[in-house]
């Protein structure tokens, strides 16, 4: 009797949590959208002078990490703890690689400085805000990984995994729009 009520309660809480998280995404999307507007308002059809190969590499790295994130979520929903832990650690490593690629390499080797015109402003602010989200995502994933090691998640109850996965995919989604906007669109 009591287990049914608690399961129903869990489902209700799940629905509430999901809605809350999606509303947060909606809100955050407006911020990212605002930056996108700034990029096109200031630079219009002008392309940023960026290293194409590097851009493609970091994009693929983030995409692969998203794949492993999805894998981690599927694994835990099937109760495969080992597979879940392995996938999530791969995701975290790839996330760190992405950060290193953008902040460590791209920022240092760019052809322009932060304070050099609209190009510098737009590029550093867009990648900076995105990188900040990646960083928080990695922290979120580390927490989930640690709690996963403790066996906190089961096939039935693993909302934290779902939430961190959704957050990670949201970051990926932002990059899916930002990558062409920064690297591919417009004329040189």
């Amino acid at each position: 009797m009591s287990s049914i009520t608690s399961s129903a309660q869990y489902q209700k809480k799940l629905a509430i949590n999901r809605l809350g998280l999606w509303l947060f995404f909606a809100s955050d999307a407006f911020m990212f959208g605002g930056l996108l507007v700034a990029r096109f308002y200031l630079l219009g059809n002008r392309r940023l002078e960026l290293e194409q190969t590097l851009g493609l590499i970091v994009t693929v790295v983030l995409l692969v990490s998203s794949f492993f994130m999805n894998r981690a979520e599927v694994m835990i929903s099937k109760g495969n703890q080992k597979g879940f832990q392995r996938s999530i650690i791969v995701t975290i490593v790839l996330g760190i690689l992405f950060l290193a690629g953008v902040v460590g390499v791209e920022w240092q080797t760019a052809h322009f400085q932060v304070n050099e015109g609209a190009q510098g402003a737009v590029f550093y602010m867009m990648t900076g805000m995105h990188a900040f989200h990646v960083l928080t995502g990695i922290i979120f994933l580390l927490i989930v990984y640690r709690n996963g090691l403790k066996g906190k998640y089961t096939a039935e109850k693993h909302y934290a995994v779902e939430a961190s996965a959704n957050y990670w995919h949201f970051i990926d989604l932002v990059w899916i729009i930002y990558y062409p906007a920064l690297y591919l669109m417009g004329l040189i």
Binding site: S66, N70, E162, H169, L173
Partner: peptide, 15 residues
């Protein structure tokens, strides 16, 4: 990504 990775539909799952 929205559909298959983020499971947008789950938002409308019955409570």
């Amino acid at each position: 990504v929205l559909q298959f990775f983020m499971h947008f539909n789950r938002l409308f799952d019955n409570d």
